[in-house]
Simulated assay, not measured.
Amino acid sequence: MKIAVTYENGQVFQHFGHTAQFKLYDAENGAVVSSQVVDTNGSGHGALAGFLKDHQVDALICGGIGGGAQMALAEAGIRLYAGCQGDADQRVAELLAGTLVSADGATCDHHHGEHHDCGDHGCGHHEEGHTCGHC
């Protein structure tokens, strides 16, 4: 199984479409056997699902993610665990242990400069549950 995590400084990066790196984990028999950090080389929202498919990713752990990207991942057959935050390695361990919880309300629509409510996915720009206009 190959798992990707939106990645920045050891943490789950909170905006799928803006991630500059993924940490890719190869897992066998419920344990990580190898991992590597790969650059997205500037791939944006639309290209990231293809980038992950090209890397034969089976599951993605991320923070906020838009509806279009969710559909592209589903079409690519990649299982999505959204609304995650904190230590990337710990989230992967939880996924492998069957205890990782994917948060509802992790969709984040950052388009057209509109304000949005990031709900509880912890976009890092405001206190939990408050509306932010950082986009």
Rank of each mutant, 00 (worst) to 15 (best):
Q11K: 15
G67P: 11
G66D: 15
Q85L: 09
L96D: 13
C135A: 05
A88W: 10
Q11E: 15
A88D: 14
A27T: 10
F51C: 06
Q11G: 01
C135V: 09
G77N: 06
G68D: 11
A82F: 03
G124W: 10
T6H: 05
E75Y: 06
G44E: 13
C135S: 03
A74I: 07
E128A: 15
H110C: 13
K2L: 10
G124Y: 08
A31Q: 15
N29K: 14
C62S: 12
S43H: 12
A72M: 14
T131W: 08
T6I: 05
D89G: 08
V32P: 10
A20N: 11
G86R: 03
V92T: 05
E127R: 15
H125C: 02
H130F: 05
R91V: 02
I61E: 11
E128H: 11
L100N: 04
D104M: 03
G105Y: 03
D120A: 08
D109C: 05
K2D: 04
E128W: 01
G46R: 14
G105K: 02
H115G: 10
H110L: 15
D54S: 12
T19R: 02
L48S: 08
A4V: 03
F13R: 09
A20T: 12
H45G: 04
G124D: 06
T107R: 13
H45T: 04
Q11A: 10
V32C: 09
D109F: 01
A82P: 12
V38D: 05
H130I: 00
E114P: 00
E94I: 03
M71T: 13
Y7H: 11
C123E: 10
H134S: 04
G122Y: 01
L52C: 01
C132T: 07
V101G: 02
D39V: 01
F13H: 15
D54W: 01
G68F: 07
D117S: 12
V57M: 05
L73F: 06
